[in-house]
Amino acid sequence: MKKYVKDLTVAEVSFPHEQYVLLKLTDKEPLPETRPGQFVEVKVEGSPRTFLRRPISINYVDREKNLLWLLIKKVGEGTHKLAELKVGERLNVVFPLGNGFSPVQKVGERVLLVGGGVGVAPMLDYGKYLKEQGANPVFLLGARSKNDLLEMDFFKSIAPVYVTTEDGSEGERGFVTQHSVLTQETFDRISVCGPKPMMVSVARYAKQTATPCEVSLENMMACGLGACLCCVEKTIKGNVCVCKEGPVFDVNDLTWEV
């Protein structure tokens, strides 16, 4: 898949949560082909201490309106600067990067999409894709509290959504792996993106139920192109670049203790 470096234009800015910004970017030309689970690297201007690009997963691609959605958590100086972007300003983007989630395996397959924190972002695009391809995606989203659940209307417009919150303010109380849907239903496969402890516990559930499971990693990276070998993850085939061979891996290819 061809990669590009482009100056995209900020078309919309919104703040679904005090710690997040949702940027919708557009271009004069149709946006290039991307796969769900791929990511972009954005250049942060006007932030002297932000030297490297910031990897951000693709949240959604609206082909009709030619918009690329990036849901960004404000963590450090760079991402805070991105949250200051205004409509009409430009953002330099290298994309699409990485392998993305698995393509649809068969019509009617039931795919559990688990997201936690900012890890919910790529699941929106993947869920839409699976639905379009005739699969049956189901979302399982985890958050600290009701207010931390993001883009719920969009998720619900695509597929059934199950929720856990740590304080019980929405859905079932606890972590995603404690949700009753996991004991009541079975799935053909699972995709998960979120904090590592969450991904490990989902991987454990997958192993117990003999369900294929892929995880999306976010190791710190520099080039995004597989050149610098900084973002490596240990796999059964040795160290590989999360930016190029990943970010999505079959959990059986990793060396995690599950």
């Binding site: 002297p48 030297f51 190791n219 990276m221 610098c228 900084c230 973002c231 490596v232 240990k234 160290n239």
Partner: peptide
């Protein structure tokens, strides 16, 4: 082993 990279002021 990972981590192999960290950003610094004007470099890495």
């Amino acid at each position: 082993d990972y981590p192999r990279m960290v950003e610094t002021a004007s470099g890495m």
